[in-house]
């Protein structure tokens, strides 16, 4: 398999100084390209922590995680170079306008066509008229569309979304979900979504429930 992430007996916890809080243990799974996955569960179960471990943003306290990109095993930094992220809080850079925010990952990679590609993506997500606007002047839905475009612009092998519709109303949520799934399907990437939304979770190929420190398949 060209692109995959494998978790073997992964467990995670954090210490508060006086107590240890265990989030999950013995999690083993494999994420593959071209598929979409949802992780659901109650608040505080550790969904976001599991996502950050899958995405190479954090290391597990127990077990192992391996990443393969384009057929080669890579480290976390290598994985992130081929990943896109969509956050609940959008996390656009406040001082950059919409166009510059989209161009950011390409510029980091030294792509000389960053501006043109960013402009194309803005048009694709329906924000061509907002190119020069800074995030503070965009609505929540517009900011999340810009964030999705930024996540896909560098043709990621993996896309990680943490509550991507958590800050949006029902109608906007649907539009943003449609956009995300369309982009993922077209790019053939592997998409992992952490969500409380049943509607969003039901659209993925696979679903897991994280509860009582265990990850169980629900679909």
């Amino acid at each position: 398999m060209q692109n995959r992430i494998k978790l073997s007996d992964v467990g995670h916890f954090f210490d508060t100084g006086t107590d240890r809080i265990d989030l999950f243990e013995n999690v083993s799974l494999e994420l593959q390209a071209g598929r979409s996955h949802a992780i659901v569960g109650p608040s505080g179960a550790g969904k976001s922590s599991l996502l950050t471990i899958m995405a190479g943003l954090d290391e597990p306290r127990r077990g192992a995680v391996t990443f393969h990109v384009d057929g080669r095993q890579v480290d976390a930094v290598g994985l992130r170079a081929r990943s896109g992220f969509v956050f609940q809080q959008f996390h656009l850079m406040p001082e950059l306008d919409a166009l510059a925010n989209l161009a950011l990952p390409l510029r980091l990679k030294g792509d000389p066509d960053a501006q043109d590609k960013a402009r194309n993506w803005l048009a694709r997500v329906g924000l061509e008229g907002r190119a020069g606007h800074q995030p503070s002047r965009l609505s929540g839905g517009e900011q999340q569309r810009a964030a999705i475009a930024r996540a896909f612009i560098s043709e990621p092998a993996f896309l990680f979304a943490d509550e991507p519709t958590g800050n949006l109303d029902a109608v906007t949520s649907t539009a943003v979900s449609d956009l995300m799934f369309d982009c993922a399907r077209e790019s053939g990437c592997c998409m992992v979504v952490v969500t409380h939304s049943e509607a969003l979770a039901s659209r993925t190929d696979t679903g897991w429930m994280l509860r009582d420190k265990r990850l169980e398949p629900i679909r």
Binding site: A55, L57, R80, P94, E95
Partner: peptide, 16 residues
Amino acid sequence: ADDRLRDGLLQTMGFD
């Protein structure tokens, strides 16, 4: 705060 957000974002994009 701005710099921390920027640094976090850059790391999600493959910067170590």
